[in-house]
């Protein structure tokens, strides 16, 4: 299994095996042939790889500093939803086409499905769960309720995160501009006009959001 092909570029899998061969743990196990067989049967190499291939990640999420260890292939979205139980951020396509997964990274809107978690070491992430101050809703959340800027609620987190960013970016100057700069956030229930009304109202309040 661990033998390299005689020619060509070694696959990642092969290099993983080579790396593992040098690891003290596996060498120890490999001392006895019986143990080596057991290791292979139980796929210990893979299990060890699991521990070794995770990368440390220091990330601030909703004001809380987290020291995590994550696989490089984990998207920021899946980290939030599946590992941190922050399910307010939604998965609607996984291709960056629907905007449901919009979060703020260092204050700017980012599609969390299109970015790997490990790319955000040392950065600050705000999700919908971190937008309100305790029980006090963010003005955009209030406005979405007042103007009924949603129906099923599934795109709502992304719409709100995007809406806040839209104003911060200075792209909420008119209804037309809002429509343009919010067009990356899809709403299949079609609550668009109400969402625009909510953004217009928050923009008019002129608060520092």
């Amino acid at each position: 299994m661990s033998q390299k092909p005689s020619k060509g570029i070694p696959s990642p899998r092969d290099s993983r095996r080579d790396f593992l061969k040098q690891s003290a743990v596996l060498t120890g196990i490999a001392l006895t042939p019986k143990a080596a067989i057991t290791a292979a049967e139980n796929q210990w190499d893979e299990k060890l790889a699991d521990a070794i291939e995770k990368i440390p990640l220091n990330i601030e999420i909703n004001g809380i500093q987290k020291s995590l260890s994550v696989e490089p292939r984990v998207t920021l979205l899946d980290l939030l939803r599946e590992q941190l139980n922050l399910t307010g951020t939604k998965k609607g396509c996984d291709y960056g086409q629907c905007g449901a997964c919009t979060v703020h990274v260092n204050g700017k809107r980012v599609l969390s499905c299109l970015t790997l978690a490990v790319m955000h070491d040392g950065e600050k992430v705000t999700t919908i769960e971190g937008l309100a101050k305790g029980d006090e809703l963010h003005p955009m959340q209030e406005a979405f309720i007042k103007h009924d800027g949603f129906q099923c609620g599934y795109c709502t987190s992304g719409q709100i995160m995007s809406a806040v960013a839209c104003i911060r970016e200075g792209h909420a100057g008119s209804e037309t501009e809002i429509r343009e700069f919010m067009s990356g956030n899809l709403c299949r229930c079609g609550a668009y006009p109400n969402i625009v009304d909510a953004i217009v109202e928050v923009k008019k309040q002129g608060k520092n959001i």
């Binding site: 937008l131 309720i145 009924d148």
Partner: peptide
């Protein structure tokens, strides 16, 4: 009147089928 579940939806607390731990 405002939706009774509006607050759940704008705060991300509403749980959908794949969101139960």
């Amino acid at each position: 009147i405002d939706r009774v579940d509006g607050r759940m939806k704008v705060t991300g607390k509403a749980k959908y089928a794949a969101e139960y731990e």
